[in-house]
Amino acid sequence: MSIQHFRVALIPFFAAFCLPVFAHPETLVKVKDAEDQLGARVGYIELDLNSGKILESFRPEERFPMMSTFKVLLCGAVLSRVDAGQEQLGRRIHYSQNDLVEYSPVTEKHLTDGMTVRELCSAAITMSDNTAANLLLTTIGGPKELTAFLHNMGDHVTRLDRWEPELNEAIPNDERDTTMPAAMATTLRKLLTGELLTLASRQQLIDWMEADKVAGPLLRSALPAGWFIADKSGAGERGSRGIIAALGPDGKPSRIVVIYTTGSQATMDERNRQIAEIGASLIKHW
């Protein structure tokens, strides 16, 4: 067993022997301040990774656009098919120029040779490549099948209805392509620590998230040296922004954090800054 596999296998073990965790309302004060600064709703939840206990939450059962955070769930569904012998990570998928959609920095470079399922998941999570996500959605049967996968996990809230990039439209009061912070946090925890996926697939999923290259201005910008984070960000229309993450000190994750916002007129930089400040408060009061 590799060191990384050992780390993920012992996530519940280490967490069980940690000192009790206590909620700190100071972080919620910052979440509410972010709402004021952005002029928009902000949803927040913080779960203990081992027990699933909610440590703090704000608007945990209000719907927010998922945006690209759905790509972690998508690759979880792909990995479940791999575990069941219905898919192979090494299978190569070929596609054409007509398949390319807006923001496809990886797939646009491989029109000639195609990409493997493993490479597509890596591109979808680490670079948020939209064509990679659409190609992977095709392998599982489309958005409705991802929703069905989530329902089978016990998540009857999260739903995907459309493809990239239309799913980022974020129309107010439109339930399409949305989740709730509580539902997303619980589902992410199941994917990373539950028995739904094999140990190898859980490790692969967290490795992809740990290698995320496009979430630097968010929670990662607030992390002290030595902290662990595996995350996936999302951005959408109407001032929408979000991030889902597993993080913790001492090089291992111990909490799940989900943050979503929508309806702001603020710039992307300002949305990023507010999420980073929430992260800084979380870490300060850990």
Results as ranks from 00 to 15, higher is better:
1 M>A: 01
2 S>N: 14
3 I>C: 10
3 I>A: 07
5 H>W: 05
7 R>E: 08
8 V>A: 11
9 A>Y: 14
10 L>T: 14
11 I>N: 05
12 P>A: 13
12 P>G: 11
12 P>L: 11
13 F>W: 11
14 F>L: 09
16 A>G: 15
18 C>I: 01
18 C>V: 08
24 H>G: 14
24 H>Q: 11
24 H>S: 14
24 H>R: 13
27 T>D: 04
29 V>E: 14
29 V>A: 14
30 K>H: 07
30 K>T: 15
31 V>F: 03
35 E>A: 07
35 E>D: 05
35 E>N: 03
35 E>M: 04
35 E>R: 03
37 Q>L: 14
38 L>M: 11
38 L>E: 06
40 A>D: 05
42 V>M: 10
42 V>Q: 01
43 G>F: 01
43 G>M: 00
44 Y>P: 00
44 Y>Q: 01
45 I>F: 14
45 I>Y: 09
46 E>W: 04
47 L>N: 03
48 D>V: 05
48 D>E: 12
48 D>F: 03
48 D>M: 06
50 N>D: 15
50 N>G: 15
50 N>A: 12
51 S>D: 15
53 K>R: 13
55 L>C: 08
55 L>V: 11
56 E>H: 08
56 E>Q: 11
56 E>R: 09
56 E>L: 08
57 S>Q: 12
59 R>K: 09
62 E>I: 06
63 R>V: 08
64 F>G: 00
64 F>D: 00
64 F>S: 01
64 F>M: 07
67 M>I: 07
68 S>N: 00
70 F>H: 07
71 K>R: 01
72 V>T: 09
73 L>V: 12
74 L>A: 06
76 G>L: 05
78 V>R: 00
79 L>G: 02
80 S>L: 11
82 V>D: 05
83 D>E: 10
84 A>F: 09
85 G>I: 04
86 Q>Y: 13
87 E>S: 06
87 E>V: 09
88 Q>T: 13
89 L>C: 05
89 L>T: 06
90 G>Y: 12
90 G>R: 10
91 R>S: 07
91 R>F: 06
92 R>T: 11
93 I>Y: 06
93 I>K: 04
93 I>T: 05
94 H>Y: 14
94 H>S: 12
94 H>L: 13
95 Y>S: 02
95 Y>D: 01
96 S>R: 12
97 Q>G: 13
97 Q>V: 15
97 Q>F: 15
100 L>V: 09
104 S>D: 02
106 V>Y: 08
107 T>S: 11
109 K>C: 09
110 H>I: 05
111 L>D: 07
111 L>I: 13
112 T>W: 15
113 D>G: 11
114 G>R: 03
116 T>V: 06
117 V>R: 01
118 R>P: 04
119 E>L: 03
119 E>D: 13
120 L>A: 06
120 L>K: 00
121 C>F: 01
121 C>E: 01
123 A>N: 04
124 A>S: 11
124 A>C: 08
124 A>D: 01
125 I>G: 01
125 I>P: 00
126 T>Q: 09
126 T>P: 02
127 M>L: 11
128 S>N: 00
132 A>T: 02
133 A>N: 02
134 N>C: 04
135 L>Q: 07
135 L>C: 06
135 L>I: 14
136 L>Q: 01
136 L>V: 08
136 L>A: 06
137 L>E: 04
138 T>A: 15
138 T>C: 12
138 T>Q: 15
139 T>M: 10
140 I>E: 04
142 G>C: 04
142 G>I: 01
143 P>D: 03
144 K>C: 12
145 E>K: 14
146 L>Q: 04
146 L>A: 06
147 T>C: 09
148 A>D: 14
148 A>G: 14
148 A>K: 14
148 A>N: 15
148 A>T: 14
148 A>I: 13
149 F>I: 10
150 L>S: 06
154 G>Q: 09
154 G>T: 05
155 D>H: 01
155 D>M: 01
155 D>E: 04
155 D>F: 01
155 D>S: 02
156 H>K: 15
157 V>N: 14
157 V>S: 12
157 V>R: 12
160 L>Y: 02
160 L>Q: 07
160 L>R: 01
161 D>E: 08
161 D>Y: 04
163 W>V: 13
164 E>M: 00
165 P>S: 07
165 P>R: 07
166 E>A: 11
166 E>M: 14
166 E>S: 15
166 E>D: 14
167 L>S: 06
167 L>D: 03
168 N>Y: 03
168 N>Q: 07
169 E>T: 13
170 A>F: 11
171 I>L: 15
172 P>T: 12
172 P>L: 12
172 P>F: 09
172 P>G: 10
172 P>R: 11
172 P>D: 13
173 N>I: 09
174 D>H: 04
175 E>W: 13
179 T>Q: 00
180 M>W: 11
181 P>F: 00
182 A>I: 15
183 A>F: 08
183 A>D: 07
184 M>T: 03
186 T>M: 15
186 T>S: 13
187 T>V: 08
188 L>M: 12
189 R>T: 10
189 R>C: 12
190 K>V: 12
192 L>C: 08
193 T>R: 15
193 T>H: 14
196 L>P: 13
196 L>I: 15
198 T>L: 10
200 A>Y: 12
201 S>L: 06
201 S>P: 03
202 R>Q: 15
203 Q>T: 14
203 Q>E: 15
204 Q>F: 07
204 Q>S: 12
205 L>W: 03
206 I>P: 01
206 I>Q: 12
207 D>F: 10
208 W>G: 02
209 M>A: 03
210 E>F: 10
211 A>N: 14
211 A>R: 14
211 A>C: 13
212 D>W: 02
213 K>R: 13
213 K>T: 09
215 A>M: 03
216 G>V: 07
216 G>A: 11
218 L>G: 04
218 L>F: 04
219 L>N: 03
220 R>Y: 02
221 S>C: 11
221 S>A: 13
224 P>L: 04
224 P>R: 06
225 A>G: 14
226 G>C: 09
226 G>P: 07
226 G>F: 06
226 G>R: 10
226 G>Y: 07
227 W>I: 02
227 W>A: 03
227 W>V: 02
228 F>T: 07
229 I>R: 01
229 I>G: 02
229 I>M: 08
231 D>Q: 05
232 K>T: 01
232 K>I: 00
232 K>Q: 00
235 A>C: 03
237 E>A: 15
238 R>T: 10
239 G>D: 02
239 G>A: 04
240 S>K: 01
240 S>V: 02
241 R>A: 04
242 G>Y: 00
242 G>K: 00
243 I>A: 04
244 I>T: 07
244 I>P: 00
244 I>D: 00
244 I>S: 03
245 A>T: 05
245 A>S: 10
245 A>I: 02
247 L>C: 07
247 L>Y: 03
248 G>K: 02
248 G>S: 03
249 P>W: 04
249 P>E: 08
251 G>H: 15
251 G>Q: 11
252 K>L: 10
252 K>I: 12
253 P>Y: 03
253 P>G: 09
253 P>W: 07
255 R>K: 12
260 Y>E: 00
260 Y>V: 07
260 Y>C: 04
261 T>Q: 07
264 S>I: 04
264 S>Q: 06
265 Q>A: 14
266 A>E: 12
266 A>C: 14
267 T>L: 10
267 T>Q: 13
269 D>K: 12
270 E>R: 11
270 E>N: 08
271 R>A: 11
273 R>T: 12
274 Q>W: 15
275 I>T: 03
275 I>H: 01
275 I>D: 00
275 I>Q: 01
278 I>K: 00
278 I>P: 00
279 G>C: 09
280 A>C: 11
280 A>R: 13
281 S>L: 12
281 S>D: 08
281 S>N: 12
282 L>F: 08
282 L>Y: 03
283 I>S: 06
284 K>S: 14
285 H>E: 10
285 H>K: 09
285 H>Q: 10
286 W>H: 04
